[in-house]
Design a protein around this nucleic acid. Structure first.
Lengths: 134, 134
DNA sequence: TGGAGCTATTCACGTCTGTCAATATTCACT
DNA sequence: AGTGAATATTGACAGACGTGAATAGCTCCA
């Protein structure tokens, strides 16, 4: 689903919590969040981001998992089509790296406007864990 | 899946892109992202957040959709169990509101450490749209 | 207590998704 | 050209997910 035909939209500078999303916007955003909504893909992103140089080849990304190479390749494709990572072929290997702008966009979207902002979101991972256990 | 038994973890102050996630952390985070990975639920969050007082009752949340009330109730349950929204019964109506800390946690998680940060993530929604169309 | 309005739960069903096995594709090196 | 290594694609299948119909639960009011 390429969303190229989506109009500019009335939501300029409008985070998720400030104005209702249109159906088109919601669909596009859901597509991106869906790419992150999988344990394997989340780990793939974190692994390639924490690799030296911020990139890792498919063999590096396959090794940490008890999954077949085609399965990892499938997950990488999902991340790539969501615009969250890019790939570059170098010799026989293909190297993947995250797209910081994509993550920053999502982060900005989730950021609550001043006044409703919560205090001290110091530890994102553990905070999210608490969220889950609530 | 209650993740109460998840240990503190080695990931203190560690955003997604700085250190590989453990399987447990990835599973917990995926659970939260999965709650956001649906157009209807994204719109529900944005609608209740943009309502006056930052809260909306189920009837307000059902009206904008061509979906049945049980379906909306199901989506609200998913958001609630993910810790993204809270509900409060007041008379016969139940009012939902977003949990800013939860969104802030996810935003912090997606924020790339200084140095890799992209410039000018000004328009989160449109930027995310571009991401999708890439 | 009974009824009406609002919300949640259960059950059933079609679709989507994650996974693997098998195979195809791309590239480097003889 | 041909071979081997690395990655991508295809096809198939079980399980998860979104949805609606029917029903249950809760709260107020008469």
């Amino acid at each position: 689903m390429s969303i190229k035909e989506v109009p500019p939209g009335p939501s300029c500078h409008t985070p998720l919590v400030a104005e209702p999303l249109t159906e088109l916007e919601a669909g596009a955003l859901a597509h991106v969040f869906k790419a992150l909504a999988d344990p394997v893909r989340l780990r793939l992103v974190s692994i390639m981001a924490s690799y030296e140089g911020g990139e890792a080849c498919v063999c590096d990304l396959t090794e940490p998992f008890d999954l077949t190479q085609p399965t990892i390749s499938h997950h990488l494709k999902v991340l790539r089509e969501a615009g969250l990572v890019t790939s570059e072929r170098r010799a026989t290997s293909v190297y993947y790296r995250v797209v910081p702008e994509a993550l920053a966009s999502l982060a900005g979207l989730l950021t609550v406007p001043a006044g409703r902002q919560a205090a001290d979101p110091v530890n994102p991972v553990n905070a999210a864990m608490k969220v889950v256990s609530a």
